[in-house]
Nucleic acid binder design. Structure first.
Lengths: 220, 220
DNA sequence: TTATAATTTAACCATATGGTTAAATTCAAT
DNA sequence: ATTGAATTTAACCATATGGTTAAATTATAA
């Protein structure tokens, strides 16, 4: 999970193996023996390093969360340069890239949320200030706040807008395997899906361009 | 799961109990003994009616899928009446109502998709013609196709647009419990979440109004 | 090299698990 | 009331499960 230069520690091997297992089976369906097999360790090592299956899951979630937040936070939203529209494009590109490259981790976060989110809510609570779209300190939030103040985008609820931005991008990566199998069953070329997904960010940009920017900012 | 007038059959009791169990624990984490307890039947009855845990899951998924599709298909998209913008509002209202009222079933579908979708892909394949947004026979698809032809909305990819429409509405219902717990931990009133969610469809309508309708169709 | 700490192992544990089976019970038709 | 079919039950099964433990092995420091 961390691409460190030195040999992967046993603890990290376990975490990586566990992440795979939780992504595929969820917490309740994950099996400690399978995790041990994947990590090529004796099952008791899981308990030596983590004490319980639950602790492994918590640690995996924390690690996944930290990685995703780090990636999302590495996106520059400094408004000193670039037209607002161009900046929006960069944000969409960058976010899309994260969701695309880490779709398995996104999958795990979604699993956690749909099964009640008891663990991730604590993680979010403890890291609320690191989240780029939190309405108190989030740098992405502040960026859009400023654009509204400057008159570049319409006055609207920023959180609602950010939910729209993110929620339009995520599903295609999550549903891709299913869509491809269905296309296969329909005798269609799954290459169509790839093309469709590659167009997704452009479509989202198009909708948001028309949807939130003031008219004078738009290039037809 | 089916609100029939007569007393709920034992088979249906099992399906309802199983749906609850699968929603909470997923397929792999669900336990047949718990399903039996929830349904107030002896565990062997699950096998008498359904043969295996897998068959129960398939049947639950099929039933959930059928119900959701039925609800989504009951929405009139006849374009003989009402302005396109008003019609869009009705579609958003109606879809929002389905996602809100059946958020647990949506949760299960999402679970199935993120864990590989092996069962639901077959269900979708077999019912492709009933899906309102399928690009060959879907009535929602055809509706938007016509609006584009009539010049009421911009020329755009309809599937991309429908993904945008749906994907903007679903997450708030899925994340609601988690968000409420986080707000609670932050000492904030969870009533804010309820208000926020109630505004969601209006926001989605606003974005799509600006985002897809041609200029002469818009009321500022 | 030795002693200690850290890591790892193999065996174990009590219980859980999806599924099976034969007997008991209930239902429906005559 | 009787018979056969359908349903239900209690017990069972072989294996799986998360976790425990003491011994063995390895690593580290002096």
């Amino acid at each position: 999970m961390k691409g460190k230069k030195e040999k992967e520690s046993k603890r990290d091997k376990i975490l990586n193996a566990a992440a795979e297992e939780f992504i595929e089976y969820g917490f309740y369906g994950a099996r400690t023996q399978r995790i041990a097999n994947k990590a090529k360790v004796n099952k008791a090592m899981l308990h030596y390093y983590f004490s319980s299956k639950e602790n492994i899951y918590k640690e995996v979630l924390k690690t996944v969360f930290n990685l995703l937040i780090e990636k999302l936070n590495s996106i520059k939203v400094d408004d000193k340069e670039g037209r607002p529209e161009e900046k929006m494009r960069q944000i969409i590109d960058a976010y899309n890239e994260v969701f695309k490259n880490y779709s398995n981790y996104v999958r795990l976060v979604i699993y956690e949320v749909i099964t009640g989110g008891r663990y991730i809510q604590q993680i979010i609570f403890e890291n609320i200030n690191r989240i780029p779209f939190n309405p108190w300190t989030g740098k992405l939030y502040k960026y859009f706040e400023k654009q509204i103040r400057k008159g570049n985008i319409r006055k609207l609820n920023i959180i609602q807008m950010l939910i729209s931005l993110i929620s339009q991008m995520v599903p295609v990566y999550i549903a891709k395997p299913v869509a491809e199998n269905i296309f296969k069953k329909l005798g269609l070329d799954k290459f169509i899906i790839e093309k469709f997904i590659n167009k997704r960010k452009e479509f989202v940009m198009d909708i948001l361009k028309h949807g939130i920017f003031k008219k004078s900012n738009k290039r037809r």
